[in-house]
Design a protein around this nucleic acid. Structure first.
Ligand SMILES: [Mn+2]
Ligand SMILES: [Mn+2]
Ligand SMILES: [Mn+2]
Ligand SMILES: [Mn+2]
Lengths: 226, 226
DNA sequence: TATTATTATTAGGATATCCTAACTTTTTGG
DNA sequence: CCAAAAAGTTAGGATATCCTAATAATAATA
């Protein structure tokens, strides 16, 4: 049923490792025993032991004295965790007055305790956000990260159109503002020519909007390519 | 600093025991090894082992072959946990569309993972509620439960109103029945005069209900006092 | 009250996580 | 290229939780 079925349950500690390895992988970095030990505030032999267990479970490949790598299974677990983490951060910031800078520690623990059901409700409540309060992409239910080949509205050529995809949602005020103007994910936008340099003219459905260049730089769109 | 300082940290399992013992204590019940084992889905020797650890930590008194009792310290820890539990249930129901009947399992895990900060934010967001969605009292930050001068609906004078607070929730069937009639914790009820002795006439919102005296004896309400 | 049934404990192990001390491999830099 | 330094592993324990099998205490009942 579940394409990424876990088969055995993952402990919070194990989840922490997968999450960390995933983040390193995304950043094209590697991480060894002592860095992991420092990060988790444990001693090196504890890391060696955990890596052996993770390897036995099929979540990482591990050869002694070599930096560990995620397996496909491990990566799929990590992707789900990243989704949880980022949705939770987004929720705490937007619905519970957390500061983006203080939210991480709370979530580092919460992420291991919330059910899929709760995550789904939060996701809905948030309107399926694509980015967390730090601007990091939130993978969807299938583990796919939002397409990062998006361009900003400000780089769309005049007389071309594009589909509004997402905004840098670190700015809550802007989100409300744009929504009130009728700009939502999916809205088709056409950039019209405007005489001014620091101002765009954007057609959104019926509406014709004047938009400051600065705002347009924060709006990510799917260019109409063909 | 912390008047009920824990000194050592409490594991989720230990918390579960304290919570359970607290609930039994409130209900003037005792609970022994095998009931606890059944409740936690472990075998009896695991319970004995845990009770010895809890005793060593000073959270319960335990003499072999005798039912365990909370110490003052254990009770103060449990009270905080009850507060968390009930605030979380209240929040999930009122802000995340959880059904009162499905919320408990989620919270049973969450309660061990949320920080005091998050609990405070939730409490604020909810406006410092005194009762959870099941009508159970929520202790305040100091562990004091709201005054429960509840009376049964059957003792409410005719032509007086009261707020539905809780029902004897050992009877699941009745709960469903009342819910289907629109009676939930928080519902304002007015007892109308009815000619009959063993039957009440109750106005709940728009509805006018006939209710057997026996049922009314199981419904606890907050009388409209002024 | 004597016997039986129920309930609870002890003994002896397993697994997960973490530790210190001692040892090995890899990396570095002269 | 070879000896330190750095990084990583193994050996041997500790604690928390949980298990099965055997044993003991308490409660129920004839
Ligand atoms: Mn984070
Ligand atoms: Mn975490
Ligand atoms: Mn509950
Ligand atoms: Mn719990």
């Amino acid at each position: 049923m579940n394409e990424t079925s876990t088969s055995s349950s993952v402990s919070p500690s194990a989840e922490e490792y997968l999450l960390t390895l995933f983040r390193k992988e995304v950043g094209n970095e590697q991480i060894g025993t002592s860095k992991l030990a420092e990060l988790f505030d444990v001693k090196a032999p504890s890391v060696t032991g955990m890596l052996r267990r993770l390897h036995k479970r099929g979540w990482v490949t591990y050869k002694r004295y070599r930096p560990p790598e995620l397996t496909d299974l491990g990566r799929s677990i990590a992707t789900k965790l990243i989704r949880r983490h980022r949705l939770l951060e987004t929720y705490l910031v937007s619905h519970l007055e957390f500061d983006p800078d203080e939210v991480h520690d709370e979530v580092e623990i919460l992420e291991h305790a919330v059910s899929d059901t709760l995550i789904d409700r939060i996701d809905e409540k948030l309107g399926h956000p694509a980015f967390d309060p730090h601007g990091e992409p939130i993978p969807d239910e299938n583990g796919h990260s939002p397409n990062m080949n998006l361009i900003t509205l400000s780089t769309v050529a005049e007389e071309s159109s594009a589909v509004f995809s997402r905004m840098d949602n670190r700015d809550l005020g802007m989100k409300k503002h744009l929504t009130s103007l009728g700009l939502q994910p999916g809205t088709n936008l056409t950039r019209m020519s405007s005489g001014q340099a620091d101002q765009l003219l954007v057609k959104a459905g019926e509406r014709l909007l004047k938009m400051p260049e600065k705002i347009a730089q924060l709006i990510w769109v799917w260019p109409d390519t063909y």
